[in-house]
Design a protein around this nucleic acid. Structure first.
Lengths: 333, 333
DNA sequence: CTGTTAGCGCTTTCAC
DNA sequence: GTGAAAGCGCTAACAG
């Protein structure tokens, strides 16, 4: 049944029915009530496609993820998606999922009101431009690096990883550690050495391992670091993600090292897994619900043209759990 | 720019342009080529909403997940979603994500061509009916239980958990185990006791624990089972999910039990995690890519009206890894 | 093979 | 406060 037939049954014009259904102020309360009741009764609901065409809005937001990226463990992704969906729902939007594993022809881009782009290490400005049809579709990019150039109609939620890392390093130094190992993912652009130096820790190149994404890769990297001779073996490992850290925990255990008595391990992201590993991971927490909320609010504001593009920086914080302890006595200098 | 203006610039009628863009056979090759080139050049692309209204199709498939369900670890969900998206993409469909954590008013259901419903323990037939608008929208339900009643226009991909469980139990029995512990999730309807009996294993009620979903819950359940007096302590634990099994592994290790020398552990689902735990989990594998492919093909066939609702049963298979071994000598009878 | 035109089902002016 | 009618931008049936 379409609105014409429905209106006919109610002896009303389609205009009135439409206004009632859209909660417009011009209809009398009784009429609105009557229309709503009848719609329920007769099982009438409007054709979304027709509304989309008439209004130019679909209430759809596309979540665009890179296919394989370091920070995105599956848990991270799901936790973020849940947060986004909740906020989106509160604003009347639905989430369209693009995991980035298929190359669509530019022709049949779905009609979305906006995009949330989760940036990976390889996401370029030109990717963003083509996704947003050169700024025609409002978008929010979630990234851990500061945007070098701003695209039109594109906001940024920048996750300031440094803030939490700095806290972690401070804490690590306070615990007496001198030799830090760093298991990093694929992102080449971080200045961990400088940050470490800032708290008096020396991070030499041999103690930095480019690991990747998976727990297995974290395991291998940690093995390599922990198999060094005792006097140059790091007493604490910092990992770019919790998944890598979980692998590091396994590696330590396989080598018969106790955590944190023999070696401390610090993760990053604070996904659910972090608290479940044993010992639970001290980790640098990204407040994902708050990332999701911020991103979605920037986006809905732009869609509603309440405001233009903006940049929000969210800091990360250290969550202290059992995997970080004092430096072993033997390694105190 | 809309199709009218675009056609005008090409000195063609909108009909011809539309046919060329839709790859219809009635246009000459040169015209089609010309239209395609010009579209690219002038940056013209059709308004999806107008197409949706005119064709009655959106090329959108809604992925409906229960909010919190036992089988669905985040990894399981993402692996399934990736598979679905790949197959959907190959058929020209996009995926709309509904994680089920917001209650939408029935009024603004998005316009989708079909649904994939991941059934949880609490998903009822009436849930399915309301999601599909009482069979008006084609749907495929992915479930591990056999549907009691069929909804109209609704196909089923049933994951036959029993097949793999039977294999696992056979293998467990062959390894000499007598006392089996079972860590189950929230789904009350399984006949593990009967299945165990089928291979000569006795599964008494005390050795079945209703755990839940999380790794922590698996840990607790395993602790409870493994803390029993030696002569009644199970020598092998079977878990309903890999996440629970991962918790069980932790519990065993905390109790100083070696896996599999002192206790064997078997998981379920074969998510990526299973191979990464140490020792890697023997687990009952659900071939998620194949679940995804089957579901999506059933759905696209129904959408295209190539075929009606159907039921496909996919079996599970045992993947043998390090966490399952022979029964300890002391426990041989 | 191409042009013309009638819908698709709604929203939204514009009258009254 | 309500009705009538003009779009929204496309597809597809119908002529030619």
């Amino acid at each position: 049944m379409n609105i014409t037939e429905f209106a006919k049954r109610l002896n009303l014009s389609i205009g009135t029915v439409s206004r009632a259904l859209n909660d417009r102020p011009e209809v009398s309360a009784e009429t609105r009530q009557y229309v709503l009741e009848k719609a329920e009764l007769l099982g009438f609901s409007r054709n979304p496609n027709a509304r989309h065409l008439a209004t130019g809005r679909t209430h759809l937001i596309q979540l665009e993820c890179p296919y394989n990226t370091q920070i995105l463990s599956d848990q991270y992704l799901v936790e973020l998606a849940r947060g986004l969906e909740t906020t989106a729902g509160a604003h009347g939007f639905d989430l369209l999922l693009h995991l980035g594993n298929h190359n669509k022809s530019k022709a049949d881009v779905p009609a979305v009101d906006g995009l949330i782009i989760v940036a990976g290490a390889e996401t370029t400005l030109s990717d963003i431009k083509s996704l947003t049809a050169y700024g025609h579709t409002p978008a929010v990019v979630i990234s851990d690096t500061y945007p070098t150039e701003l695209a039109a109609s594109t906001s940024y939620v920048q996750i300031d990883v440094q803030s939490g890392v700095r806290d972690a390093l401070k804490q690590i130094a306070a615990m007496g550690h001198k030799r830090l190992g760093y298991i990093r993912s694929d992102n080449p652009s971080d200045n961990m050495t400088d940050l470490a130096a800032g708290v008096g820790l020396v991070l030499t190149p041999e103690l930095i391992i480019q690991a990747g994404v998976s727990q297995q890769q974290g395991y291998n990297a940690a093995l390599q670091l922990l198999n060094r001779p005792r006097e140059s073996r790091p007493t604490v490992l910092l990992s770019r993600t919790d998944i890598l850290a979980a692998g590091a925990v396994q590696a330590a255990q396989h080598l018969g090292l106790r955590i944190p008595a023999d070696v401390s391990i610090v993760g990053h992201d604070d996904i659910d897994l972090a608290a479940l590993v044993s010992p639970p991971l001290t980790t640098i927490s990204i407040d994902l619900p708050s990332v999701a909320r911020t991103a979605m609010e920037l986006l809905t504001d732009m869609i509603a043209e309440r405001s233009g593009p903006a940049i929000r920086v969210l800091t990360t914080t250290l969550i202290v759990r059992g995997s970080l302890g004092r430096v072993p006595v033997l390694d105190q200098r």
